[in-house]
Design a protein around this nucleic acid. Structure first.
Length: 670
RNA sequence: CGGAGCGUAGCGUAGCCCGGUAUCGCGCCAGUUUUGGGAACUGGAGGUCGCAGGUUCGAAUCCUGCCGUUCCGACCA
């Protein structure tokens, strides 16, 4: 692509409305422009990135047997009423004013309605159906550019199975496909267990990219032994010790004491708040739930939803007096007169005694509360939110809480939608059952935004993985120099057959602007043709990520350059149908991933672990070779001549398959 | 939906408190000189100051309403 004919409106100054780095850089690099709040126009440069992401998604979805659809964004209100989601979604769903239609925020209903008519026998199952399509959600507060928009592109997939075991298989396929997708997109991500109650499902995992721009909080450990959304995370938390002193509970005056901190000072327990049982009132339809957690803990509303259902909500301050007889700060588990209140406490407080809590009378508390003795009807659940630095449940690792961007989410839905819409199949005995479903989503623009959040510097974006809009930008420093212009144009005409290349042939644009634009738009490799280089018979190649410059002889530049690309980046950037054959060249630079694989093993299955480890090395210069035992079976892989990663043959085979999928070329031993 | 801010040329802004027909930078157009890290000089184009109403001899500026937009919170497969 010639830049002189490519619409790339870069901007030098920071846009005033943008706060997060990805939003600023998407505007500055000419990827997007805002049309109205939460709605963005995609310009050619941005569209290239989104299309590349979609390509990766399509390949991985097709690889697990997915079939691509394209469903309407408009759908009838009635369909949504059948599953109850017209009301559940509330204001988040866009409604058409002059027809009984909505703009779909997701497509469980529409896909299921197709399944209902066509997937009618166990022989029709299983199926994986997906689409990449525009979704509409009337977000109350769009923010951070495309990270939370009212219109966005989503890959949504749905699995249809005849058994729960089948659902597990479909789900696991997606779990692996998603790992492949985000890895190929150049993201560092966590796979966390997630809340699934709202979708009516059981298992659920989210794919999270760590970033300060994220809206979720996740809990991870150093070695990824435990990864969870904070909404459902658990940790090791010491129980409050039972003292068995059998002191009588007694009311005492606590004038103007509203918070745990004030209470701790008042009763001289400033260093230990654990026996100050903190009460909160939640409204659950017609009834109420009084929760108790240690004073230094917070109750998790998501955990309450898991226990009591999705509609539970915190009581409004003005409701509390009517429900309990006291305002916030004086509520407690004793002397409850309202029989609609259920009392629950966190597991840390199980059978605890000598507790202090509110008296359900303003400015009064009780001390020496013994849950076992005084609140016999109390129920215990895990309802606390974990805290940074706590130990995991097995006490082996320390947890860290960090912000993250949700780029993907996979669900085991079960039969909620198939039952609601009557989508059933006949089994081998002729009995009818609802189809068992899964639902799997990926945010396309979010991948790009998350990638930029993780890969940028003060000069601009640094694309890596397979989503770079171009592989190479060729810069002709000065088009007024006819000889130079001619040479650069010649390189362009030949290179465009082998790599995705953007040719900065703009006339009357100074070199400095071209260099700065190239850094801003973040294309991985810059090829610079200039007078300075021409005099020395060299062409300059700059690696955007490292700033490292290579100087290549101009006589045999094309082949040498492609060889360099292969050497510094594995050959995935060189197109498969390129006329250039990398193996005819002696590479003078050590490759960063180069390994031998035995071809003896025919059967293999994917094992993710080694792949993840190897990908951790992908930006380093490493040499990896497989190790064999005495029977010439692969037992491991050696990296940089020192680190041996043990693995099974099947793992290496999987690696082979994955690299094949990546357009890497495995070099087989001769 | 609660709280706060902003709306002036394509972009970024000054002016507003204290009323007198709009500042500066970038960009854009023409010309000359430059040409490896966002050039210099000269000349030029471009603005119903978000919209509507009000106060006033006079409103970007003061008042009222509305709209848009951003941030914090609430909310959120």
């Amino acid at each position: 692509m010639r830049l002189s004919q490519f619409f790339l409106p870069t901007v030098k100054e920071e846009p005033a409305d943008a706060v997060v780095a990805s939003h600023k850089l998407m505007i500055r690099s000419g990827m997007i422009r805002q049309l109205t709040s939460g709605v963005y126009s995609y310009l050619p440069f941005g569209l290239r990135v989104f299309r590349k992401i979609e390509k990766v998604i399509r390949e991985e979805m097709n690889a697990i047997g997915g079939e691509e659809f394209h469903l309407p964004a408009l759908s009838p209100n009635e369909l949504w009423a059948q599953t109850g989601r017209l009301d559940d979604y509330g204001d988040t769903i866009f409604r058409i004013k002059n027809r009984e239609l909505v703009l779909a925020p997701t497509h469980e209903e529409v896909f299921t309605s197709i399944a209902k008519l066509n997937l009618i026998s166990y022989k029709d199952l299983p199926k994986i159906w997906y689409q990449i399509q525009t979704k509409f959600r009337n977000e109350a507060r769009p923010r951070s550019g495309v990270l939370r928009g009212r219109q966005f592109t989503m890959k949504d997939a749905y699995s249809f199975d005849s058994s729960w075991e089948g659902l597990d298989i479909s789900y696991d396929k997606h779990a692996q496909a998603y790992r492949n997708i985000f890895t190929r997109c150049g993201l560092n991500f966590y796979v966390v267990t997630a809340f699934s109650g709202a979708m009516g499902g059981s298992d659920s995992e989210e794919f999270m990219v760590e970033s300060d721009a994220g809206e979720d909080n996740i809990v991870v450990t150093e070695n990824n032994s435990y990864c969870s959304n904070i909404e459902v995370a658990v940790s090791y938390a010491e129980k409050v010790e039972r003292k068995n002193s059998n002191l009588q509970a007694e009311e005492f005056h606590t004038p103007n004491i509203k918070t745990i901190e004030e209470l701790s000072k008042f009763v001289n327990t400033e260093n230990d708040w654990t026996r100050l049982a903190k009460s909160r009132i939640f409204v659950n339809g017609d009834s109420y739930v009084l929760t108790l957690v240690c004073g230094d803990d917070e109750v998790s509303e998501t955990k309450l939803q898991n226990i009591f259902g999705q509609n539970i909500r915190p009581g409004h301050p003005e409701e509390l007096m009517e429900i309990t007889g006291a305002d916030a700060g004086s509520i407690g588990p004793l002397k409850i007169t309202n029989d609609k209140i259920t009392v629950v406490a966190d597991l840390r407080l199980e059978d605890a005694d000598e507790l202090i809590s509110g008296a359900n009378k303003n400015d009064y508390h009780f001390r020496n509360i013994d849950f076992k003795r005084d609140v016999p009807s109390i129920k215990y659940y895990d309802i606390r939110t974990v805290k940074d630095g706590e130990l995991t449940q097995d006490k082996k690792d320390k947890i860290r809480i960090t912000k993250a961007i949700e780029v993907g989410h996979i669900f085991k839905l079960g039969t909620k939608y198939s039952e609601a819409l009557g989508s059933t199949f006949l089994d081998e005995q002729g009995n009818s059952h609802p189809i068992i479903m899964g639902s799997y989503g990926i945010g396309v623009e979010r991948i790009a935004a998350a990638h930029i959040e993780q890969n940028h510097d003060k000069f601009g974006i640094i694309w890596n993985g397979e989503i770079a809009p171009f592989d190479v930008v060729l810069i002709c420093a000065n088009t007024n120099n006819k000889k130079m212009f001619k040479q650069a144009t010649g390189f362009y005409n030949k290179l465009k057959n082998s790599v995705d290349i953007l040719y900065d042939d703009r006339v009357e644009v100074r070199a400095g602007i071209k260099f700065n634009d190239a850094d801003l738009i973040g294309i991985p490799y810059q090829v610079i043709v200039s007078e300075k280089n021409l005099e020395r018979g060299k062409i300059e190649v700059k690696e955007r990520k490292t700033g490292k410059r290579y100087f290549i002889d101009s006589q045999n530049f094309l082949n040498n350059f492609l060889a360099l690309l292969i050497a510094i980046n594995v050959d995935k950037r060189v197109k498969k149908d390129s006329t250039f054959n990398p193996y005819e060249h002696n590479l003078s630079v050590k490759p960063n991933l180069y390994f031998h694989i035995s071809s003896n093993h025919k059967k293999f299955q994917i094992e993710k672990r080694l792949w993840e480890i190897l990908l951790g090395f992908r930006n380093k210069y490493i040499l990896a070779e497989s190790k064999f035992d005495e029977k010439n079976r692969i037992i491991g892989i050696e990296v940089d001549n020192q680190e041996i990663l043990e693995c099974k043959p099947s793992t290496l085979k999987a690696l082979y398959r994955r690299t094949y999928h990546h357009d890497f070329k495995i070099i087989l031993p001769k």
